[in-house]
């Protein structure tokens, strides 16, 4: 069955099973490996992308559910934020300034979750952040994640 995936502005027609999770279509079919596999059961957020601007955990999202939707992955985050070619989205720059990542594996998902939150709620309270950013980071970058969010929201 042909599935139409619009990813980072490019339309792909894929002959794949409708129940294949979007994560594996992105990684193994389209070679977009910036989106990570962490748990496979929607419990960690490593696989988060934007589907029509909404933070979505792709490990449990069948491709048929996003057929035709606008999908943005970490590779396309800068472009959708309106950054010029080769430049970064404000959250990505904030992540560099605060030196947030350690191993970095969770950070694609973290950045996608945070950027979706800030798009919807540019002035989140600490409680809003706690409720929205439930991504797991085994390296414990949480204090810097919060500080980097605050550096953007204070700007």
């Amino acid at each position: 069955m042909a599935i139409t995936l619009k990813v980072n502005g490019t339309t792909h027609s894929l002959d794949i099973e409708p129940e294949m999770p979007l994560l594996w279509a992105l990684r193994d079919e389209l070679g977009l490996t910036g989106t990570k596999f962490g748990c496979g059961v929607a419990a960690c957020g490593a696989c988060t992308v934007h589907v029509d601007g909404v933070a979505t955990r792709t490990c449990v999202t069948p491709v048929e559910a996003v057929d035709g939707a606008e999908i943005t992955t970490i590779e396309g985050l800068a472009a959708t934020s309106g950054a010029a070619e080769g430049m970064l989205a404000p959250v990505q720059q904030a992540w560099i300034d605060a030196q947030v990542p350690q191993c970095g594996y969770c950070q694609s998902g973290m950045l996608m979750a945070v950027s979706a939150l800030l798009a919807e709620n540019p002035r989140p309270t600490d409680e809003d952040i706690d409720a929205a950013i439930t991504n797991v980071c085994r390296c414990g970058t949480y204090p810097r994640v919060r500080a980097a969010i605050r550096s953007v929201t204070a700007a």
Partner: peptide, 22 residues
């Protein structure tokens, strides 16, 4: 505190982990 060499690739999806081998 010098900025780490490995950070830029970890915020734009280009960092390659073992699971990203091709």
């Amino acid at each position: 505190a010098r900025p780490r060499f490995d950070i830029p690739g970890k915020v734009n999806g280009t960092a390659k982990y073992g699971i990203d081998a091709e």
